[in-house]
Design a binder for these strands. Structure first.
Lengths: 124, 124
DNA sequence: CTCAAATTGAGACTTGACTCTCAAATTGGC
DNA sequence: GCCAATTTGAGAGTCAAGTCTCAATTTGAG
């Protein structure tokens, strides 16, 4: 049987309220606002459960540390700022890219990542 | 001054002749055919130099270990078989996805990965 | 309220992917 | 062929990311 704890709800809340994918460290400091004693082990433990239960998703992109996001967010893709190393969401999805697979290959999912500079880093 | 060694040419040859990205372990065993004593340290050292010199490129995709490929290969994207964890090349490129970036963001590059099963793993 | 079961936090440990060190071997200008 | 400079292989070391252990704390059914 599973208990509802302050740490778990804080972590879930941070994840669903974020408007971009977060690193475990991001989550730790954001959720730490409501649960000051929060430990990293708990963040990782909780992310693992959320991922197993399909509520969160791990996002790995070259040049950035691992990020997590809520699966409740609509289908979207990513933008990695090569200056500040943050991941942002893109709206929309290039339909038709699934057709790029060779004969005999079965496509289940796809991912698109754009690399560049975010608006903050572009500005002087 | 830099020496031309059997190990270096074997590693370069393996990379340029491959028709898909390779892991350091793939490269070690393939190049090991011509240089049996080849060590992993040499593979990593050489990949680092090739990457620095722009002759090779690191490819990181979620669910697969790091892969390397020759930059001589034409622009393309990837297919990750979730069964055998191998990376394959896709031909073509969905042009226009660079337009997905928000206002004020500058796009420098992009990456597309399809996930699914390769022809070998699809077949019974 | 009670108390067994579940959860937590701290810190040690593990894992994968490199990177370093150094003695021995190789390379190539002469 | 000589020999200084470069490179190599083996194994130890490093680093980031995550997992484990366990005593202390929290949760919630009754």
């Amino acid at each position: 049987m599973s208990y509802a704890t302050r740490q778990r709800s804080a972590i879930s809340r941070v994840l669903t309220q974020a408007n971009r994918p977060l690193t475990p460290a991001d989550i730790h400091s954001a959720a730490g606002a409501s649960v000051p004693s929060l430990g990293m082990a708990t963040v990782y433990r909780c992310l693992k459960e959320l991922t197993r239960d399909g509520a969160a998703r791990l996002i790995v992109v070259q040049g950035a540390p691992p990020h997590y996001e809520s699966t409740k967010r609509p289908h979207h893709h990513f933008f990695l700022c090569q200056q500040c190393r943050s991941l942002f969401d893109l709206v929309g999805c290039a339909s038709g890219i699934n057709q790029m697979a060779p004969q005999g290959f079965k496509v289940i999912d796809h991912e698109i990542v754009l690399y560049g500079s975010c608006d903050t880093c572009c500005a002087p």
